[in-house]
């Protein structure tokens, strides 16, 4: 109970500047979860396939990198948003 009261008390006095930094940190931290999992899946599946059939490894690596870069894009969006929050707004 006291915690909630303290939090509300705190948030009413929170300045816009502090809110900006908090938003940037939250945006980057939450936005990094999805791409990390996605890239992990891509890498795991690619490793699995390469282990099963090593002769396709050369053909696979560029495709894997492109797929990872595409998975990364949601993380990049949140990065762009937090950069804008930090340096532009």
């Amino acid at each position: 109970m006291t915690l909630v009261i303290r939090f509300t008390h705190f948030s009413t006095h929170m300045e816009a500047e502090a809110m900006k930094f908090l938003a940037a940190g939250l945006c980057m931290g939450l936005g990094a979860i999805g791409p990390a999992l996605g890239e992990g899946f891509v890498a795991a599946k690619a490793m699995e396939a390469m282990g099963r059939n090593p002769s396709v490894a050369d053909k696979m690596v560029p495709n894997m990198i492109v797929a990872m870069a595409i998975c990364e894009s949601t993380g990049i969006y949140s990065l762009v948003i937090s950069l804008i929050l930090l340096f532009v707004v």
Binding site: A69, E72, S73, I76, Y77, L79, V80, L83
Partner: peptide, 15 residues
């Protein structure tokens, strides 16, 4: 998506 991907990666590297 295509423009923000390129921009974000390179800008983030510099930052």
């Amino acid at each position: 998506s295509i423009s923000c991907r390129l921009f974000g990666n390179l800008f983030a590297g510099d930052v």
